[in-house]
């Protein structure tokens, strides 16, 4: 633990690759993305292998995830949003597996603790949702920025605030996931350092670490959920205005 609690977020190149002079090396982050992808694939393929009428335990897990996301999307964004279900489902499962893989002791690396990754996903959602809104409503989409029942004199100010508020979406979306993951992992690392440093007396911080890890498991699921539900709500704004 000489490197300090932030060393765990270090990117290490595994396979150096450059395309057109740009560095696109396969790193530990890429490795865990690949693991998350393989994990999700395995989870689903193995779970739905039989696709039986009466589901087994594993199949039930897959179905619960599916229905959870489907209900969330339907409740938050209505019937029209159905066709975006595969995307939301992918988003949720991908972030969930990323967060959980990050909690694997000693080797885990959560690429969701990298702002650029969460920001890339958030900006994709943001741009995508805005384009969907524009495609569906045309210029009426900008009604989104005009608050209802506001006094005329304040309207220009309110519209500017609404636009700024709209622009905060990708930031808040990405920062929330990023900050939660970084905070959790840093805490775990710090207390892990205590356990090692205290030797025999490290039992107390160890017990605390167990509690902390269960808390982090909850956060891992919750943040995947929050990312997905907010995407659904943004989608709802774009599809139905308000």
């Amino acid at each position: 633990m000489v490197e300090g609690p932030l060393a765990q977020f270090e990117i290490t190149t595994l396979i150096p690759i450059t395309i057109g002079g740009h560095d696109v090396s396969f790193t530990n982050s890429s490795l865990f993305m690949a693991l998350a992808v393989l994990g999700v694939m395995f989870f689903m393929v193995a779970g739905m292998r039989k696709g039986s009428l009466v589901p087994g335990r594993w199949q039930l897990c897959v179905e619960v995830c599916y229905e959870f996301v489907a209900n969330m999307l339907h409740d938050a964004a209505g019937r029209d949003a159905r066709k975006y279900f595969p995307f939301i489902f992918t988003l949720f499962m991908f972030i969930l597996f990323a967060n959980l893989l990050g909690l694997v002791p000693f080797v885990g690396f959560a690429f969701t603790s990298h702002i650029i990754v969460t920001f890339a996903m958030a900006i994709f959602v943001f741009v995508g949702v805005t384009l969907i809104g524009l495609a569906k409503h045309g210029f009426k989409f900008f009604n989104l920025f005009i608050p209802k029942g506001a006094p005329k004199a304040l309207l220009p100010l309110l519209v500017v605030i609404e636009i700024v508020s709209y622009l905060t979406r990708p930031i808040s979306l990405s920062v929330r996931l990023f900050a939660n993951m970084v905070a959790g992992h840093t805490m775990l690392e710090v207390f892990g350092g205590f356990v090692v440093a205290l030797g025999v007396f490290g039992v107390a911080p160890f017990a605390f670490i167990v509690v902390l890890i269960s808390l982090e498991l909850l956060v891992a699921v919750l943040q995947a959920y929050v990312f997905a539900i907010l995407t659904c709500l943004y989608l709802n704004d774009a599809l139905n205005l308000h």
């Binding site: 990117i11 396969f26 790193t27 890429s30 690429f111 990754v117 996903m121």
Partner: peptide
């Protein structure tokens, strides 16, 4: 670290 991560993401 930005570009390689975005690329693989």
């Amino acid at each position: 670290v930005f570009l390689p991560q975005i690329f693989w993401l």
